[in-house]
Design a protein around this nucleic acid. Sequence first.
DNA 1: CGCCAAGCCTGACCGATGTCATGGTTTCGC
DNA 2: GCGAAACCATGACATCGGTCAGGCTTGGCG
Lengths: 243, 243
Amino acid sequence: MRRIPCEGCPAGGSGTVCDLPGEVLTDWRQSGTTVLYRPRQVIFGEGTPPSALYLVCHGAVKLYQSDRFGRDHILEIAGPGALIGELSLDDNDTMSVSAEALTAAQVSIFPRERLAAFIERHPETGLRLLAALSRELSLARRKARDLALKGAESRLAGLLLQLGRAGGAVQPGHHLELRYTRRELAEMIGVSTETAIRLLTALKRKGAVASDGRDVVLTDPDRLGRIAQHDESGLHDEAGARP
Amino acid sequence: MRRIPCEGCPAGGSGTVCDLPGEVLTDWRQSGTTVLYRPRQVIFGEGTPPSALYLVCHGAVKLYQSDRFGRDHILEIAGPGALIGELSLDDNDTMSVSAEALTAAQVSIFPRERLAAFIERHPETGLRLLAALSRELSLARRKARDLALKGAESRLAGLLLQLGRAGGAVQPGHHLELRYTRRELAEMIGVSTETAIRLLTALKRKGAVASDGRDVVLTDPDRLGRIAQHDESGLHDEAGARP
DNA sequence: CGCCAAGCCTGACCGATGTCATGGTTTCGC
DNA sequence: GCGAAACCATGACATCGGTCAGGCTTGGCG
């Protein structure tokens, strides 16, 4: 996969929280810790008290949730600039997700205790943090909407496009960068592995994608987009509009 | 329904952002606007640029998303202290939800432009805003998890308990305060109205709840809890655990 | 080199949900 | 109060998606 340059930390990317003025950056680094994780290493677990900010500087991090039966649901693949995790002032609260490095990943951990002072020194950065959290909120809400309102095929199509975009502009023939297993794809759209496989096969038959094992090619992004939006199969319009 | 006292705004509740020191409160009120909405009035719509904070001071606000077919999904019923909406620094972003007053509702709107300066004056309040947003994030993520991993009956049971808790301690025989239509219940758990009705009937047969029209009574909260957690019916364990 | 684990794929089957239709009941605006 | 519109409920039926079972392919490792 393509490597994103990362001089210093948080830094590099074009993410909202990333491009901090040098002075602020220095200050951030002094108050926080930077940790390097290896692939498959757990960064934090669901249920942990949310007492620090976690900022992804480099690499890809999987945000997921488990139920008691061991089934997982992947909420998001977070890249540089993403503010993963949650922050509460009440230690009885717990985080709703676990985080695990997918690639080698650098994460900046900023303890809650030093946050108020830091924000006082750099109020605009406080704003950026709010915006970064807000972005996560928006992502999570869209995910919920898709799960509630769209069919599985639409969700898969949308996912593939999204994964494509994460690796640059999507053009016909675009290859996905990170090569996920069918199981991971399934956990990202909330279906069983078998269903994900069948849906992929269906998309191949329709000529929207091609795949050879884990290597997936978006042969017809427009078609994918229509499937993602339109819910081409089943589920059609209904009366219920709001007056 | 029970009225929540609201002297001044934001104020009253025990919500994180609500109990501000007097001085901060005065400052907040001077920079923001307070608007009173009537039931069914739209506060903001999906797709709007996220250029201000919206803080619920009083009343209940429905956060929902629509698809192109007019189907809605209700993400959350927000009460006093909830920071609804999202905040982005990029005006090309759009909000992922719409908000509509359910009851008469007082909402404090704080423009983005004045936020940095305000945070500079009151850094600890900045922290509280972060925490409030974080709470919303946590809610949205749990919602996504439930939609992805739980069956519809579990979601309904969980919803009823949650609605019960929102109106105080849940005891056997507890009546829900806000009386929702079946359709609203359905939109909160992401199923069709008919399914919601049938699931409610099933819960009644099991003795977990009783209902007379819109008036729902939680006769057996423990049982409800078990159903919400356990997925008593269908869907059972599978091999896939993480090693 | 060959084995074993993990991943991929398909078929059969079935339960959970959505859709459509129908009728009685409640609610709400006037 | 009245009437239209929304709401509640239930049955019949189609479909989606999960579960279970079997077999093939790949890749890593002894």
